[in-house]
Amino acid sequence: MLLPYWWMLSTSLKHPPELFQIGINFLPSDPTLDNYTKILNGFPIIRWIYNSFIICTLVLATNMTLTVAAGYSFARLRFWGRDSLFFIYLGAMMVPLQVRFIPTFLIVLDLGWMNTYQGIASLLLIDFFGIFLIRQFMLNLPVELEDAARIDGCGWFQILWRVIIPNCRPALATLGILIFNAAWNDFMWPLIVINDMDIMTAQVGLAVIRGSAASISGGLMAATTITALPVLIIYITLQKSFKPTLMMTGTKS
């Protein structure tokens, strides 16, 4: 299971002649960081990672506010058309980008958002699955908590901020992780919207390196390792939060 990762790492530390040796050696005989320095000099990888972080931050910010607020409305508030709207959202969840990216591309082109952060982030600003997830979680919170707050004179914003959100930490953590991961790994849409090297995300940048290399080299594996690191670090530190993630999705609802 982990062998491919090990192979990536060990390849990235090997001198070129060793790469093209027949026979398996899991450990580089003479580890070197040459591949890393070369690839970092050849491509603006750090800049790409920075871009990816900006986009993730942007997308996290909008989702943590707008998606959460919408989820709350669907769970608790009552308004005309709520249930049919929610049904439409469930349908929207099922329509993948792959079947609507041509007009979406034209919209972003019209807005003048090609090669911009907002262009890349635009499709991820609100997550319908996230609305669904938050709604399901909030439905299980006792209404009495809110009633008490209302009797004490809280408005809806205050209730959301002071009562609901503190009680929703696990769901919010889940949503945050899912959103970050989706934004970081997103490939097809950024590929369509960017052609400027300076705005590229880490994933698109990797594809560029792949396209420019004649063959797979230690440098490519080094680049793969570098761009995979942020997600791996976040994943390993937040590993415990992943457990409720999938328990809450889908089957149980």
Partner: peptide
């Protein structure tokens, strides 16, 4: 949690 781009390259 890895991206399809990176696992495809590996």
């Amino acid at each position: 949690v890895s991206s399809f781009v990176s696992v495809s390259l590996i």
